[in-house]
Design a protein around this nucleic acid. Structure first.
Lengths: 110, 110
DNA sequence: GCTTATGCATAGGAAAATTATGTATATTTG
DNA sequence: CAAATATACATAATTTTCCTATGCATAAGC
């Protein structure tokens, strides 16, 4: 995913957030979007992304639809209703985690 | 018992940062300090902490010293020179991670 | 005396990445 | 025009990192 191990555990949140903004996306598109937004800082590996998408689909948070474009197959994913609700939870969890870590590394500010 | 789970990769950063502030600490003390600072939000489990301490010691980032206090054994850890340098790196990585994630989840602010 | 707190340790297992492959088509470049 | 790169999805094997459960031992509180 990147040189820092800290990103472990954040992949699902990233996927859900992107799908919350963009209605529907396919896997490769997600990797490119993340790379663009983070200016190359974060590169999602395929070995991490595809299993994560399959799991989210199996859990009922995503729906998938295969579409043919430019003679190539794309598997588009979109949030289910459950997925939308879970996105809110994940984002709150991330915000809480960041807050906790900032408390720990910068106790003077508390 | 433990409320919000640790995000993978953050435990080492927490340990190094605490030892950077407090000169020397023992394992149990670290769990209590984290609990106190985060107001119970984050509870480091022993099954995570002790192996992490052993690994940091094996990597040469920490030195350990066993001390008898109140008829009980405490294993105090402190940063080595290498450990101090690595602390700076880990904190920078954490700052970068937070910045990147905020960019991803809050693109309007960019 | 029983429970909780203090203190360290490890075994077993789960979760979530990485690395390494595999398949296939399209486009760019030397 | 052949080779490299980009697009697109997928999985197997392994590693990292954490949690749960368990074990041992002493001290303090009720």
């Amino acid at each position: 995913m990147s040189n820092s191990k800290l990103y472990k555990g954040s992949l699902n949140t990233i996927i859900l957030k992107l799908l919350n903004e963009h209605d529907r996306m396919y896997g490769y598109e997600i990797t490119q979007k993340v790379k663009a937004i983070t200016k190359g800082e974060l590169n999602i590996t395929e070995g991490a992304l595809y299993p994560a998408l399959h799991k989210l689909e199996a859990e009922g948070l995503l729906d998938a639809e295969v579409v043919k474009a430019d003679n190539r197959l794309r598997k588009y994913y979109k949030l289910t209703d459950t997925g939308s609700k879970e996105t809110v939870n994940k984002l709150q969890e991330l915000a809480d985690y960041i807050k906790t870590m900032q408390t720990l590394i910068n106790p003077n500010l508390v």
